[in-house]
Design a protein around this nucleic acid. Structure first.
Lengths: 187, 187
DNA sequence: ATTATAATCGACACACAGTTGGGTAACAAC
DNA sequence: GTTGTTACCCAACTGTGTGTCGATTATAAT
């Protein structure tokens, strides 16, 4: 590994700005966050912000890609012996990761986020659902995906909003049951 | 009915502003919508806006309350012979209404909306779910509600986004099946 | 036709957005 | 340690939206 490492000052400044954005996004929508507010919290000069990012969306974008890469690396380290495409086991791993990065996850999964990682999740779900329902009408499958993913995401949002009170494994089971077997299975 | 009717000019101006907001909210989040943009589209003087509303959120709020009142009146006109608390029949009626007010519904249900009627829907769901699951752990029930409502809302969003291609009754059945019996019931 | 008032217009101070040029200090490399 | 580089800060400037106000014009109600 050569020294393609960026200047320590740059890394520090970017980390400050990332933290500031995550902090602000706990309470505000990305479109309502000003460059000034960001720089005030990060204690960074406004010119410095523009030296690295074009606007807060740009910053958010970079954070998002970074997080996805991290999650991917994290999941690669686990090895799953699953028959199901989306097992309680895998989901629990993901929830572990989310819990460990709660503030960040909250920001990226909340309705305060625009591009919402949810687009990326959708692609993932595409692969999964094709395995489960090879012979279902396309339109219906799209709706099923939409329903399942957004249902799960909003369960996650609630969980994060309230400080992840339940253990990840419990929530994973609940989500799987809801997705696969519906409300009535709880009666 | 006395003449507690407001000045025709006022009604006209407010209608223009409501339409402008709905139009902008097809593509932008409420927090990104400026008073100027609103007035440009409505072709109304900016001072006039402030004469009626404190900010775009205020306008959105008033629209929301109005729509809920209309929906309520609409549903009262139908009479349902339902055993289920949320039947395909009732849901179809609601979807009919939504389809008839597509642009408006799209604005209010989308992620571009902040207070999201979804809070009101949650209260409604509270009543329904208490009837179905009288003896379920509170926490679990909260998650079930969250899952079902947001799953359904996102199905609606997709439906509206794509121009309500399916007939309301079909979508109503799909949603009920997903909520009550889950993905596996489609296999 | 008269009166009341809604809407417009122009102007104001203020705040945030982007951009620029110059000075300072921290960095990497040798 | 010295040196060349560059990230950061600071101050200034233009542009654009905000919220308010008083004067003027247009229009609804009677």
């Amino acid at each position: 590994m050569q020294t393609d490492r960026v200047d320590r000052r740059v890394r520090y400044t970017k980390a400050l700005l990332r933290d500031a954005l995550v902090e602000l996004m706990q309470t505000q929508h990305i479109s309502a966050i000003s460059v000034k507010a960001l720089c005030d919290i990060a204690d960074v000069n406004r010119s410095t912000f523009y030296a690295h990012y074009s606007d807060p969306y740009d910053l958010l974008n970079q954070i998002e890609r970074e997080v996805l890469a991290n999650l991917k690396r994290y999941l690669d380290r686990q090895d799953f012996n699953s028959s199901e495409p989306l097992s309680v086991q895998i989901l629990t791993s993901i929830l572990d990761y989310i819990k460990e990065n709660a503030a960040l996850s909250k920001a990226l999964l909340s309705e305060n986020c625009d591009f919402a990682i949810q687009k990326d999740i959708m692609e993932l779900a595409q692969i999964i659902s094709e395995q489960i329902y090879p012979k279902l009408d396309i339109r219906t499958m799209e709706y099923i995906k939409e329903f399942g993913i957004n249902g799960c995401v909003s369960v996650l949002q609630k969980w994060l909003r309230e400080g992840t009170p339940e253990p990840p494994a419990l929530l994973a089971e609940l989500m799987i049951q809801l997705m696969y077997f519906g409300m009535k299975s709880f009666q």
